[in-house]
């Protein structure tokens, strides 16, 4: 599992792991019933404290994105797939909220912002 961790960031390491696993589930890189690396393996791979990984897994279990199977490791839960749509929308909405807030701070009008969004969408459609 390839994580991009930034120990020097103000964001706690366990939250960075939580967010990246959520993202991988939302993007479909991780699917229901996929087995997660063990806490030990992930800690060793990234040279981080096993407690940090354990805390991230615990948080994701609380959200029911991961589930532990007795004596058999940690898996992406079946529910995660169902929650994926919701997470996708949430992830993009958060970015849009930031963009809208920045636009407001810089004094862009709603029309200008809409125009920008249309242009960005057009770019992606062309690329596709």
């Amino acid at each position: 599992m390839q994580l991009k961790l930034q120990p020097a960031s103000p964001i706690p390491m366990y939250l960075q792991i939580v967010e990246q696993i959520r993202y991988a589930i939302a993007a479909g890189t991780l699917r229901a019933n996929d087995e997660m690396p063990s806490v030990r393996a992930l800690a060793l791979e990234h040279v981080i404290n096993p407690n940090t990984v354990a805390r991230a897994y615990l948080e994701l279990e609380r959200e029911e994105l991961l589930s532990k199977r007795r004596g058999a490791g940690t898996y992406v839960s079946a529910k995660a797939e169902a929650m994926r749509g919701e997470y996708r929308i949430r992830a993009v909405r958060q970015l849009l909220e930031k963009a809208v807030a920045t636009a407001a701070e810089l004094g862009l009008t709603a029309a200008q912002l809409r125009n920008l969004l249309e242009k960005e969408l057009a770019k992606v459609e062309v690329e596709r």
Binding site: A8, S9, P10, I11, P12, M13, Y14, L15, T52, R55
Partner: peptide
């Protein structure tokens, strides 16, 4: 705890 420190301050450990 480093996580608590970051969460409470919103700052990196260095800051």
């Amino acid at each position: 705890a480093i996580d608590d420190l970051k969460a409470a301050s919103g700052m990196s450990l260095e800051d």
